[in-house]
Design a protein around this nucleic acid. Structure first.
Length: 268
DNA sequence: TCAATTTGACCGAC
DNA sequence: GTCGGTCAAATTGA
């Protein structure tokens, strides 16, 4: 990630900007739709648009997180990818009595990464594995939602950052379905004195302290801003009733992605 | 006793 | 063959 060519950086920048612009366009469509619902299917269409927007952000974060759009893993699209078919028989001879190894790989398209000094995020997680990762100094831990038995498929991966060991990079996969689905989180978009601090805080109105989604774009500069300008975030306001953001705290600190040159995000 | 964590083995993707 | 993700037995702790 540190030794990318100038062309790679340009490609990455284009990819990020492209996704953000796409997200903005979709948000605009959604806004229009919400203001002028065309038919009875408007709500369905709105949901699809919201999903598109979410995917755009997810893709953007993937590019940023994985250090480039060239990374195959970040490009895996929606749907289960690969994974064995565990519907009954084991393809291999039953060497072991259990179903060890019979699993489906997670859907990386529905993932997002946070960097925070805290490992806790208010959710109940159960650790199910730990691995030494080749390129990482610290082992990676794997957690799943405690309510897996109730069908909640949310998982997360926690990795201490080599360069800054007090920080933990947490990658979430899937959403919690163990919560009351009908109580979709509301998002408060808080603009705090835009010229100085373009801090946007997406905050759930759930009576617990676990989940502010704060997006600080004060390091988004010049040409990036021209494409993904701040109006995008104002457009997002209109999505409040529809956006179902991942329900946990989002603390993004992308300062490490300095290879983007003037594209430098910091999320807190 | 039960739930959570640890750990080594297994598996699929590359 | 390597690597990352997952499984489940064994272990630990409340």
């Amino acid at each position: 990630m540190s030794s990318l060519s100038h062309e790679d950086l340009l490609t990455k920048r284009k990819s990020v900007i492209g996704e953000l612009v796409r997200g903005k366009e979709t948000a605009t469509q959604l806004k229009t739709l919400l203001q002028n619902p065309v038919n009875d299917h408007a709500s369905v269409l709105a949901e699809e648009l919201a999903v598109k927007i979410f995917r755009s952000f997810t893709k953007t974060l993937s590019v940023l997180s994985y250090g480039g759009g060239a990374d195959k893993r970040s490009q895996i699209d929606a749907g289960d990818h690969g994974g064995s078919d565990c519907s009954g028989e084991n393809k291999k001879s039953p060497r072991v009595k259990d179903r060890r190894g019979c699993y489906k790989r997670r859907n990386t398209s529905d993932s997002w990464t946070t960097v925070s000094p805290m490992k806790e995020d208010g959710c109940a997680w159960r650790k199910y594995g730990q691995k030494i990762i080749l390129s990482a100094k610290y082992p990676r831990s794997y957690f799943r939602c405690t309510h897996k038995k109730q069908g909640c498929k949310a998982t997360k991966r926690v990795q201490r950052i080599k360069e800054d060991p007090i920080l933990y990079q947490t990658t979430y996969f899937g959403h919690h379905t163990c919560r009351d689905k009908l109580r979709a989180p509301q998002i408060n978009v808080i603009d705090t004195d835009p010229p100085e601090s373009n801090l946007l805080c997406f905050e759930e109105k759930i009576p617990q302290v676990d989940s502010p989604f704060e997006f600080k774009e004060d390091k988004v500069q010049s040409d990036t801003k021209s494409s993904a300008d701040s109006s995008l975030w104002h457009d997002m306001k209109s999505l409040e009733p529809f956006m179902v953001w991942p329900p946990k705290m989002r603390c993004f600190d992308m300062e490490g992605f300095d290879e983007f040159g003037d594209l430098d995000f910091t999320f807190y």
